[in-house]
Amino acid sequence: MSISLHVICPNGHNLRHLGEFVYETGRWLVSEETARQVTRVHIHEKQKLPAYQGGNVISWRADPEGTGRYYFTYRATEDARIPCSGGWGQELAIVRHVEG
């Protein structure tokens, strides 16, 4: 199973540009098991709008402060600009994909 993580980041808030098409998200509260399965990240301005950015996850890391939150590093791709097909929580949605 893989997971697409959809998150709300208005105006690129908490996004870090690391290099050519590579970004790191702010920290998000998900379980470590979920973090391990995230293969795509989609960054949205608002829940009802398609993602304005996102891409393939390169790596993830736990918040060093031990908050149970995770950062995701991804390479931006044009095909990540999609609406969320799952149910939103307050600021994020976890969309599970079954392979096969």
Rank of each mutant, 00 (worst) to 15 (best):
S2L: 10
L5V: 02
H6C: 00
H6D: 09
P10H: 08
H13F: 13
H13S: 14
L15H: 03
R16H: 10
H17I: 13
G19A: 07
F21R: 15
F21I: 07
V22Y: 00
V22G: 02
E24V: 07
T25N: 06
V30C: 05
V30L: 11
A35Q: 06
Q37A: 14
V38N: 01
V41G: 00
I43W: 02
I43G: 01
H44E: 00
E45S: 13
Q47I: 05
Q47A: 10
K48A: 13
K48W: 14
K48C: 12
P50M: 04
P50I: 02
A51K: 02
A51P: 00
A51E: 01
Y52C: 01
Y52V: 01
N56E: 15
V57A: 05
S59R: 15
W60C: 09
A62L: 10
A62E: 13
P64I: 06
T67Y: 11
T67G: 10
G68K: 11
Y70I: 06
Y71N: 07
Y74L: 06
A76T: 07
A76Y: 00
T77H: 07
E78L: 10
A80Q: 04
A80K: 01
A80M: 04
I82G: 01
I82V: 15
G86T: 02
G86C: 03
G87E: 14
W88K: 07
Q90D: 14
Q90E: 14
L92C: 09
L92D: 02
A93M: 07
V95F: 04
R96F: 05
R96W: 08
V98G: 07
G100P: 05
